[in-house]
Design a protein around this nucleic acid. Structure first.
Length: 194
DNA sequence: TAAAAGATCCGCT
DNA sequence: GCGGATCTTTTAA
């Protein structure tokens, strides 16, 4: 399966957020063990006019990766106990990224279960941004990882038809909350509901 | 130097 | 459905 090239990410953030649905996010360790899943829910964040974005108001030490070149991973720590995983978009200098909110498990489910705990159902493994981060074993040390590299990458998978895509407002934010910048696959079990 | 808010999840009611 | 856990980042004094 081919990995998406860097120029694929160097486009309009909303376009990339929509196009990421159906792609496969994979984390492969040194032993070649793969853990991955199909992206079923995303949210776009952009520095222009989007008060909810970390990049709104300019570059800081935390959000520096968002302003870097596209095709890299932006991981941040939130609420004192959770990590969230983003894909950097647009050309270098623009602070924009796409939050991955939902993943359908495809590979390495045993390892996911191990990381998430024994009482977790299959659907609870990855139906939320912090959950999929834990399931994939992604944390702050992966902030700034190259998505065109060999450890963390996104394969092209299968694009999703427009009839299967739902556009909605974003979740869990208080500012710019009415922007329809959330995309998910209709009826999929791993979309974080609400 | 301190304080408050935050792109969340889980367990209890 | 509601609130607690828990800590990093940012902003203000």
């Amino acid at each position: 399966m081919n990995r998406l090239p860097r120029e694929w990410y160097a486009r309009d953030t909303l376009t990339v957020a929509r196009a990421l649905l159906g792609r496969v996010l994979v984390h492969q360790n040194d032993q070649g063990v793969r853990v991955g899943g199909r992206i079923v829910e995303t949210e776009a964040y952009h520095q222009d006019g989007d008060e909810a974005a970390h990049s709104f108001g300019g570059q800081t030490a935390r959000n520096a990766v968002m302003f870097g070149p596209p095709g890299f991973l932006y991981v941040y720590f939130i609420y004192g106990m959770h990590h969230c995983l983003n894909v950097v978009t647009e050309v270098e200098g623009v602070g924009a990224a796409v939050l991955i909110r939902g993943l359908e498990p495809l590979e390495g489910e045993n390892l996911m279960q191990q990381r998430r705990g024994p009482k977790i159902t299959r659907r609870q493994l990855t139906n939320g941004p912090a959950k999929l981060c834990a399931a994939l074993g992604v944390a702050r040390e992966h902030d700034g990882s190259d998505l065109t590299g060999t450890a963390l990458f996104i394969e092209e998978g299968t694009a999703v038809a427009d009839t299967e895509v739902v556009t909605a407002t974003r979740i869990g934010i208080s500012k710019s909350a009415d922007f329809p910048w959330r995309f998910y696959i209709k009826g999929n079990d791993w979309v974080s509901k609400r």
